[in-house]
Simulated scan of single mutants.
Amino acid sequence: MKKIRILLADDHTILRNGIRALLEDEPDLEVVAEAEDGRAAVNLACQLEPDVAVIDIAMPLLNGLEATRQIKRQCPRVRVLILSMHDNEEYIRQVLEAGAMGYILKDAAAKELINAIRSVHQGEAVLSPAITRLVIEDYLRWGGIRPADKDGILSAREREVLQLIAEGYTNKQIAGILTISVKTVQAHRLNLMQKLDLHDRGELIKYAIQKKIIEI
């Protein structure tokens, strides 16, 4: 029997180890790699091309939403299942739009996660029951048409820079992480402030927290 190859991405080692042990008790599941941040998750997903990438939404360096966007753009055959403690409507909408095939809450029963991985592998969309209710309520509230969000005017690189700024990295450190020049980082920072009508680092950090780009 061919096993379902899984990439597990979560920045909490104890939780990651527990999920790995749970999954590897199943004869048809195999964890082929682990990542503790979003950038590593993208690199491993495209390098190994697992069948399913199980990704935490809140990770350092690159959050689960941006990691999903990059995985679906760079290695679209990899199917993404989001594992999160948040039942936030905005989170859910954005990750589904980014290409994730499922969204499961971390307090779900073990069997729910295992079945979700199998379903996503088969090409089926999967949501925790509580998430399904929120998605329906969100659709009924907006009728499928939502007000414009400033997030939509940011480029992928600007969103990456915003997260790293909010996580406390200096311009030089951000340049090293993204392999770009310090001047380019400064240009992205200026563009962020202009597009979002923000005026200093503190306001950028506050915006990132409000939009759940980072957690505190």
Rank of each mutant, 00 (worst) to 15 (best):
5 R>P: 05
10 D>M: 06
10 D>I: 10
20 R>Y: 00
22 L>E: 01
26 E>W: 08
27 P>Y: 01
32 V>A: 00
35 A>E: 07
37 D>I: 07
38 G>Y: 10
45 A>P: 06
47 Q>G: 00
47 Q>V: 01
50 P>T: 12
59 M>W: 08
61 L>G: 00
61 L>Q: 11
62 L>S: 06
62 L>E: 10
63 N>E: 03
63 N>S: 07
64 G>F: 07
65 L>N: 05
68 T>N: 06
76 P>W: 11
77 R>A: 14
80 V>Y: 07
81 L>A: 09
81 L>I: 15
83 L>P: 08
90 E>W: 02
91 Y>H: 12
91 Y>V: 03
92 I>S: 00
93 R>K: 01
94 Q>W: 01
94 Q>P: 04
97 E>Y: 02
98 A>S: 00
104 I>T: 14
105 L>V: 05
109 A>K: 15
111 K>N: 14
113 L>T: 11
118 R>S: 00
123 G>C: 03
132 T>I: 14
134 L>F: 11
140 L>W: 14
143 G>E: 03
149 D>E: 03
151 D>S: 04
153 I>C: 04
153 I>L: 04
154 L>K: 02
156 A>C: 01
162 L>T: 12
163 Q>V: 09
165 I>M: 04
166 A>Q: 06
167 E>H: 01
174 I>F: 06
181 S>L: 10
182 V>N: 13
184 T>G: 15
184 T>P: 14
189 R>I: 09
190 L>V: 13
190 L>E: 13
192 L>S: 07
193 M>G: 04
197 D>P: 02
199 H>F: 10
201 R>Q: 08
204 L>H: 07
206 K>G: 04
207 Y>A: 08
208 A>F: 01
211 K>I: 09
213 I>E: 01
213 I>K: 00
215 E>W: 08
